[in-house]
C-alpha cells in the first residue's frame, strides 16, 4: 500500500469508526490525515476527531448517522480531497525556548553518557532538528514530536517519575515532547521551557496541533527566568 492510498474504514462501535492510512509513519501519511481531519470538521454530525500517527478516529452522533450513512459520508468527503494538495492544512511552525542543562533537566548527563556525546552536543542536536507533531494525547496538549536524530535515541527510564514538572522537555526512543502539566512520566528530561503548552483561555487551547512543525531554541537561565520560567519541581 502506498502511503497516500484511500484509508480503510472500520466500525469501532455504533458511534465511532477508525480510518487507517496504512502502517507506515511518514510525513506523507501525516499530511493526508491532517487534510482528512480538516475536511471532516465541517461535516454535520461529527462529534470528535482524534488524528494520530497512521489513523483517524471519527466519533459521530449516532442519532444522525447509522453505520452505512457514516461510511458513505466519510468516503464522499475523502473523495474530494487530493492527497497532494496541502492547502487544506493549517499547519504552523512553533518555536519553543528551552533552558537545557542538569539544573532542570536531571537526565541530561545520563543521556549524554548513553549517547556517548557531550552535554553541549546533545543540546545542539536536539535543537538543530525540526520535528513534526505526529500525535497529541496522553494528557491535554502533550505532542508526540518526531523524529529525534539517531544519535539521541535513548530508552525510557526504568522507573517513571511520579511527578514531572510542567514544561519539562524530554526525549525517549525516537521522540521528544514537552510535559504540559504535572503528570507521571518515564521520558528522559533534558531541560525546561517557560512557555505554556496549554491555555484554556486561548483560541487554539494547545500551543502545538497535530501536523505542526516544532523547533527548540536554547536559552540561558536568565532568559528562562525573564520569560517566567520556574525553578521548582525537583
Amino acid at each position: 500500500m502506498s502511503q497516500t492510498d484511500f484509508p480503510n474504514i472500520d466500525m469501532v462501535s455504533n458511534q465511532a469508526c477508525l480510518l487507517t492510512f496504512g502502517q507506515v509513519i511518514s510525513d506523507a501519511t501525516s499530511n493526508y490525515i491532517a487534510q482528512v481531519t480538516q475536511g471532516l470538521k465541517s461535516l454535520a454530525g461529527i462529534v470528535d476527531l482524534v488524528p494520530s500517527y497512521t489513523t483517524l478516529l471519527v466519533i459521530f452522533d449516532d442519532d444522525h448517522y447509522d453505520r452505512f450513512a457514516i461510511i458513505k459520508a466519510i468516503r464522499h468527503t475523502i473523495d474530494a480531497i487530493d492527497p497532494n494538495d496541502f492547502s487544506l492544512i493549517d499547519s504552523r511552525e512553533v518555536v519553543i525556548p528551552v533552558y537545557y542543562g542538569e539544573e532542570l533537566g536531571p537526565d541530561i548527563n545520563d543521556v549524554a553518557a548513553h549517547c556517548q556525546l557531550s552535554v553541549d552536543e546533545i543540546i545542539q542536536r536536539h535543537s538543530d532538528t525540526t520535528y513534526r507533531a505526529y500525535a497529541i494525547g496522553f494528557t491535554p496538549g502533550f505532542a508526540f514530536l518526531g523524529n529525534t536524530p539517531d544519535e539521541l535515541h535513548v530508552p525510557r527510564k526504568t522507573t517513571p517519575r511520579l511527578k514531572v514538572p510542567i514544561g519539562s522537555v524530554a526525549i525517549a526512543e525516537n521522540q521528544t515532547a514537552v510535559y504540559p502539566s504535572v503528570t507521571p512520566g518515564g521520558w528522559q528530561i533534558i531541560g525546561r521551557t517557560p512557555v505554556n503548552l496549554i491555555d484554556w483561555g486561548s483560541k487554539n487551547l494547545a500551543l502545538i496541533a497535530m501536523g505542526d512543525s516544532v523547533r527548540f531554541e536554547p536559552i540561558s537561565r536568565d532568559e528562562f527566568l525573564v520569560q517566567g520560567g520556574l525553578l521548582d519541581g525537583f
Binding site: S13, Q15, A16, Q23, P51, S52, T54, L56, L57
Partner: peptide, 10 residues
C-alpha cells in the same frame, strides 16, 4: 499497536 484514538467503552 501504533497509538490511535480511543472510543468510549474500548
Amino acid at each position: 499497536i501504533i497509538s490511535e484514538g480511543i472510543a468510549y467503552g474500548a
